[in-house]
Simulated assay, not measured.
Amino acid sequence: MKDLQEILAIAREVGWGASDILRSYYHGTAKDPDLAVQYKQNEPVTVADIAVSQYILEKLQAALGHEEFAYISEETYQSQLSRETAKWVWIIDPLDGTRDFIEKTGEYAIHIALVKETRPVLAVVAVPEAEKLYFATIGGGTFVETHDGCVPIQLSSTKRIEDLIVVASRSHRNESLNYLLENLPCRNYKSVGSIGCKIAAIVEQQADIYVSFSGKSAPKDWDLAAPELILTEAGGKFTHFDGSFLQYNTGDINQWGGLLASNGQHHQSLCESATRLLAEFAG
């Protein structure tokens, strides 16, 4: 198999290419800019999702083949369920934040993660409208790439817990999550669209905390695998409320339960608060 840095170079190039395609649809300059919207399990899907999914899969498969790697994309996973036995799996979200893409908030992203067994070892998160690409490898740190070059990102913070900024979704809410957000010790909130953009806000130190709690549905592997590694390699933390790590490629694409991402500061205390608040809510 190729060296991880060689694979990363390929994934970065694919991330930039995918960004160009999404921006062409977003700004109406694509050959066929019609963003006809369909719904799959109550979630919107556009021709841009499909086009970028095909592009990413074709480029990765042409460079890396099928022998050593399996591939799962949000748009194609139902035909690829046998991939769960593979040791190395690409987990891809060609358009994270489709609603934001449609509503033109600019807060959409592309996720490309390489998972070994159940944990991510390589990640690319592209934020097209910011013209930025975040990348990380396990043990290698996190970097942000622009057209001017790459710089490392390392989180540092000395805020009091009440001064931490929680970044939250505008649309993916339920009663239990609202209760959590209203009662955590943090008092500052910021609405940001896609999960990739939320994690980008944390690594850019524009926010500090992201909380997810599944209701009838849950975040999927492709929502979290790439952003998680970007955050943790920058010095942040991303765990279940009980402190355990997320597991991917397990045969269940859903990430059930409570999840907390942070800049690393006050992480355990916030997990404990979230657990207590959920017990209060259920009681």
Rank of each mutant, 00 (worst) to 15 (best):
H27T: 15
D32L: 11
I138R: 13
E162R: 12
E162C: 03
T239G: 00
A113D: 02
Y210T: 07
T118S: 13
A70W: 02
Q265V: 15
R12H: 05
A30T: 03
S19N: 05
L270D: 09
T158Y: 11
I50K: 14
A113I: 09
A123E: 04
A9D: 11
I7G: 02
L231G: 02
S191F: 14
S169T: 03
I21C: 03
P120K: 06
A207I: 05
Q54M: 09
K237H: 10
D208Q: 07
P44R: 12
E204C: 01
T105M: 06
A18Q: 05
E13W: 01
A207H: 02
E84N: 11
Q61L: 11
F143S: 06
R23M: 15
A234Y: 04
E145G: 03
L60V: 03
S19V: 04
H267Q: 08
E182N: 14
Y71V: 04
T76R: 08
A126K: 04
A225W: 02
H111D: 12
K87S: 13
W88P: 00
S262L: 08
I195F: 12
A200S: 11
A201E: 14
Q268D: 12
H172A: 06
A30W: 04
F69L: 05
D252V: 14
A200K: 14
G243F: 13
D49G: 03
P185V: 08
E43K: 09
V115C: 06
R83E: 10
E74N: 04
S156E: 13
F69P: 01
A136D: 01
E280T: 09
T250K: 08
G196Y: 10
D20H: 10
V125N: 00
R12S: 02
T98F: 10
